[in-house]
Amino acid sequence: MVTTRSRAWAVAATVHDPEVPVLTIEDLGILRDVRELEDRVEIVITPTYSGCPAMDTIRQDLELAFTEAGYDRVVVETVLSPAWTTDWMTDEGKRKLEAYGIAPPRVSSERRGPIPVALGVRCPRCGSLDTREVSRFGSTSCKALFECRACLEPFDHFKVH
């Protein structure tokens, strides 16, 4: 059981996030379960954000990856609960993000008060903490736009969620 599940899991873990191609869906923490049953394989994924348009592409990529790996019937399920959090991103995923030029989420998600407090974000290029948030929203739902005051480069921050 363990070996078959691991093999199917490894297939699922080859699929990348189309919007942050440096991360696999396993790195991102959205691959929740892979079950190899008698007549089919079931893969469970969860969206990062409710309106994330990448989910359809990920679903298709999973179907393709399993078909190519010789599985006849592939069922991809989407679960909303428990809700995804950046706490599920792997350390490997965080390293890959930083190397790619996106500041990874560093602190754990937790309830905050109604008036937001800005936290320091390290520049993924020069490592300076002298950065500022340009916009709380970026090119995709999961990122915010930052600027480094030390090296003057703009960069994306994968926000804590």
Binding site: G29, R32, D33, R35, V44, V79, P82, D87, W88, T90
Partner: peptide, 11 residues
């Protein structure tokens, strides 16, 4: 997967 136990996730 940190604190998530995937085996406990019911479909």
């Amino acid at each position: 997967h940190g604190d998530v136990t995937v085996d406990a996730l019911e479909l």
